[in-house]
Structures are given as C-alpha cells and as structure tokens.
C-alpha cells in the first residue's frame, strides 16, 4: 500500500516534469542562444550558460534585423504582426457577434440561408482557395497592405457559431422583460447581450489573437515588400537557404520576440480563456 501511495504521487509529477522540460528546454536554449556572440554559437556544442550579449543581440534584432532580411528591423515586423492579430481578432468579433444576434433573435426571410452561408465557410480555409483569393486581393489592390493581411481572414464561422450557441442559452424571460420595458433589439443587444457575452468575447479574443499572430500562408502570399513582413514570415527569411551564414544569435532573439506576445496573452487571460472554452462546449 505504501508503495502504491508513493508512486501514485511520483508518477504524475515525473510525467508532468517531462512535459515541462519538452516545452521549456527549447525555449531555454533559444534564450541562451540569444545571449551569445556569432562565434560562440557556432562553437559546437554551444554553452548552456547564458552569455553577456543579450542586450546587444536584441537591440540589433529590433533595430536592424539580419543581412538576409535586408536589414528590415524586427520592431517593424512586430508592429505588423500586432496590427494583423488585433485587427483580425477585433474584426472577427465585431462582425460575428451582430450576425449571430441577427440569426438568433429575429425571424426574417432567408435567415436559414444566411446562417448556412456563414456556416459553410468553415469548410473553406484559406489553404483550399489560395490562388483565387490571391487574385481577388490583387484585383482589389490589397497586396502589401494591412487590408490585404486582415480582410480575407476576418470572416469567421467559428466565432459566429460560438456566439450563436451562447445566445441560444439566454433565457426567454430576459427578452420578454426587455420588451415590457419598451427596449428595442438595439438596446437589448447593448444593455443585456453584450454584457452577458463578456467571458465569451474574452475567450474568443485570445483564440483569435493567436490565430492572427500565427498566420503563415496568407501573409506569405499577400506581402512582398520587406516593410510589410510579419515576424513569423521574417524569421523564415532569416534562416532561408542563402549563401550568407545564418546569424543564429539574432534568429533566436527574434524567435523569443515572436512568441512573447501570444504567450503573454495566454498567460494573462488564461482564466477567461479556459472558462470561455468550457462554456462554449455546452
């Protein structure tokens, strides 16, 4: 019995610590890499003790990037990614909350058709319509613009579905009470539905911010100019096959900068994120 009791505590911790190491070790090596000089990092095996060039490497990454990215500063890439992630997250919430409200709280002709039209877009991720979507973006002169980075990704069946599922759980009594008070659909939306949806909005924001920040294929297609590069694409260009040596210490500093914002969003909003997911499941 003693053995079972002891091992039943020991085994989970061992498994979880293994998980922790798998997650944190690559990040730690990246951190150490970002504190070394170019020659230190190439002297295999590199040290696992941080060096003294942290500030220098981050300053160079933020200020002037690498030779391979033609000196495009990572600070500018971070800004592009931030704008893209914020516009996609906010845009998706702003267009899908009203549309879910419309299909749930009204009866009008073609309502079901509208809902299905939105729903089937779940089946059309950007990856299956790459070339034609690119053509449309080109026709609308959206190449190399924030509009091009964000607009085609702003429609979201997922967010609409989540809001719809939640709106269906709002008690009829609340709607009746609003009607008795003489409140129209607009007041009900602003005064009752949006405040009740706060948790869902927060959870969706986390999911959508990360979705936007981590986009790869679409930014790769729709941006050509270095000044519009997002950080996830920028890192790719830093290690791309070229004649010049990859500057790993700058790449690692950039990698850390690239994961920091989405990681912070998850950590700071973990409570709402998990709560929103659990509620969305219902």
């Amino acid at each position: 019995m003693m053995v079972t009791a002891r091992s039943s505590v020991w085994v989970p911790h061992a498994v979880l610590v293994t998980g922790l190491v798998l997650v944190l070790f690559p990040v730690y090596v990246a951190f150490v890499g970002s504190t070394l000089t170019a020659s230190e990092i190439l002297d295999a095996p590199m040290s696992l003790v941080p060096g003294s060039h942290l500030i220098e490497n981050f300053a160079r990454a933020l200020g002037s990037g690498t030779v391979k990215t033609s000196g495009e500063p990572v600070a500018a890439m971070l800004l592009n990614s931030l704008v893209m992630a914020l516009v996609i997250a906010a845009g998706k919430i702003l267009i899908s909350l009203p549309s879910a409200y419309a299909v749930v709280f009204f009866r009008f002709p073609l309502r079901r058709l509208c809902f299905w039209a939105i729903f089937v877009t779940l089946m059309l991720p950007v990856e299956v319509r790459i070339i034609p979507t690119y053509k449309i973006a080109a026709d609308l002169s959206l190449i190399d613009s924030y509009g091009g980075l964000t607009l085609p990704l702003v429609a979201s069946a997922t967010a609409t579905l989540l809001f719809r599922q939640f709106f269906l759980t709002i008690p009829d009594e609340l709607v009746e009470a609003a009607k008795i008070d003489g409140a129209g659909p607009w007041r009900f939306l602003i005064d009752t539905v949006i405040p009740l949806s706060r948790t869902n909005i927060a959870a969706l924001f986390v999911i959508l911010f990360i979705y936007g920040w981590n986009q790869y294929l679409w930014p790769l297609l729709v941006t050509n100019s270095p000044s519009m590069t997002t950080i996830v694409i920028g890192i790719r260009q830093m290690i791309g096959n070229g004649d010049t040596q990859t500057e790993w210490q700058i790449v690692m500093a950039t990698t850390l900068l690239a994961v920091l914002p989405p990681v912070l969003v998850v950590i700071l909003m973990q409570r709402w994120f998990v709560k929103g997911l659990v509620e969305a499941e219902k």
Binding site: I95, P98, F105, F108, L124, I136, V154, T160, P185
Partner: peptide, 26 residues
C-alpha cells in the same frame, strides 16, 4: 428561440458585414 424581435431591416444590416466578407473572400 421562442421569443424573438420583429422586423427584418435591422437583422439584415447586422448580417451585412459578415455576408459581404464571406461572399468576396470565400
């Protein structure tokens, strides 16, 4: 839902942005 609001113009306006993006880019 059992209890709903009446009218069609307001919900159509609410749906418009999403439908527009969906038609153009999907």
């Amino acid at each position: 839902r059992r209890v709903v609001f009446s009218g069609w113009l307001f919900p159509v306006l609410l749906l418009l942005p999403q439908l527009a993006v969906t038609v153009v880019f999907f």
